[in-house]
């Protein structure tokens, strides 16, 4: 990697690290959301660095634009006011158990990643956007149609679940 790329990588990694710590550690859920947004933007920068510009834009559009607004709606609709539900910190035992689980999984996976390096080309390959469009319509057409059906069904299901019935139950 070039020096500038290393610097930018470190910058994005720092954003991701601090954002994810804020997202899981903040007492107020709105602050956790801000941490999540910072993390998502950092991951979008990583996609940019990996020469996947289309994915970076989709990340900002779908995650920051749509999913985060949805989560904000969830926070507002459940009246989870600032300092409300996560105000009292979790008991120490629960924190310790969560930390044990995370460290065991992360330790095993990190050890595997570090000790078994894969052969890399070093330079990210570039996929022209026309080729991705052709791929979506050609060999991966079935997956594309299926994801549309999944989105449609989940939206219909969400409307059905949250439907407010007029007269009682």
């Amino acid at each position: 990697m070039e020096n500038l790329a290393k610097f930018v990588f470190g910058f994005y990694a720092l954003i991701i690290l601090s954002g994810s710590i804020l997202a899981v550690g903040a007492k107020s859920l709105v602050r956790a959301m801000v941490g999540l947004i910072a993390t998502l933007l950092g991951v979008a920068g990583m996609y940019m660095l990996l020469n996947a510009q289309f994915l970076a834009l989709m990340q900002i559009l779908i995650y920051v634009g749509a999913v985060c607004v949805l989560i904000f709606f969830a926070i507002m609709l459940t009246r989870a006011d600032a300092g409300g539900e996560e105000a009292e910190s979790a008991p120490l035992r629960q924190n310790l158990l969560a930390l044990t689980a995370v460290l065991s999984v992360g330790g095993i996976l990190g050890w595997l990643v570090m000790t078994r390096p894969q052969a890399t080309t070093g330079v990210p390959t570039e996929v022209p956007i026309e080729q991705m469009g052709l791929g979506l319509l050609g060999p991966y057409g079935l997956a594309f149609e299926l994801i549309s059906v999944v989105l449609l069904v989940s939206m219909a299901g969400a409307v059905l679940l949250a439907w407010e019935r007029r007269n009682g139950k």
Partner: peptide, 28 residues
């Protein structure tokens, strides 16, 4: 870096006590 994201999400989903906080961790 991806492993850091996984670890943060895993920690959050086992430690958060509200459903919205768990949703945020799943997104991570």
């Amino acid at each position: 870096v991806a492993l850091i994201l996984l670890m943060a999400g895993l920690f959050g989903i086992s430690q958060r006590r509200s459903l919205v906080g768990m949703l945020i961790s799943v997104e991570l």
